[in-house]
């Protein structure tokens, strides 16, 4: 069965996550920093009475840093019992992709930890990188990352 994906932009690449995992996309919310957290944790925010952690997706994906750190949008994703925010540049679209059109992630996508990628799909003439939120949000990954640092 075909799935719908929310397409968003990060630097100049297009990324997609399954629409069922996206709760809302918010304009930037005031953040409170969390001391001692890994650098990809941008802080926590108040989303209508719930406190939700916000992740800097660029840092999480180890993308090169861009000078302007202004947050455009926070995409709130749901996974299991919890919600996590992720900073994105802009959300563009929702597209439908047939499962067979998703190809396994090639190792050529420079810079991104291939583990976080579920696959790639062609949307028009552009490549959409479909993210594996489960892996991105799994904390033993974070532990490993911390150990590396």
């Amino acid at each position: 069965m075909a799935n719908q994906y929310v397409v968003f932009q990060l630097d100049n690449e297009l990324y997609g996550v399954e629409i069922t995992q996206v709760r809302t996309i918010e304009k930037s919310l005031p953040l409170t920093r969390v001391p001692h957290a890994p650098n990809f944790v941008k802080g926590v925010c108040n989303l209508r009475g719930s406190v939700i952690p916000v992740m800097d997706l660029k840092k999480r994906l180890s993308l090169p840093e861009t000078p302007d750190e202004e947050i455009d949008r926070i995409m709130i994703v749901n996974l299991g019992r919890f919600s996590v925010g992720m900073t994105i540049d802009a959300a563009n679209d929702v597209v439908t992709i047939e499962p067979e059109d998703i190809e396994p992630s090639p190792s050529i996508i420079s810079g991104i930890n291939a583990e976080f990628i579920q696959g790639v799909a062609k949307v028009g003439n552009r490549l959409l990188i479909i993210l594996d939120l489960q892996k991105i949000l799994t904390l033993d990954q974070i532990d490993q990352l911390e150990k590396l640092n």
Partner: peptide, 15 residues
Amino acid sequence: NVAWGQELFRDFLGT
């Protein structure tokens, strides 16, 4: 309480 990432909030009882 923050549902995700308990490990990140080790120094805090919550928010």
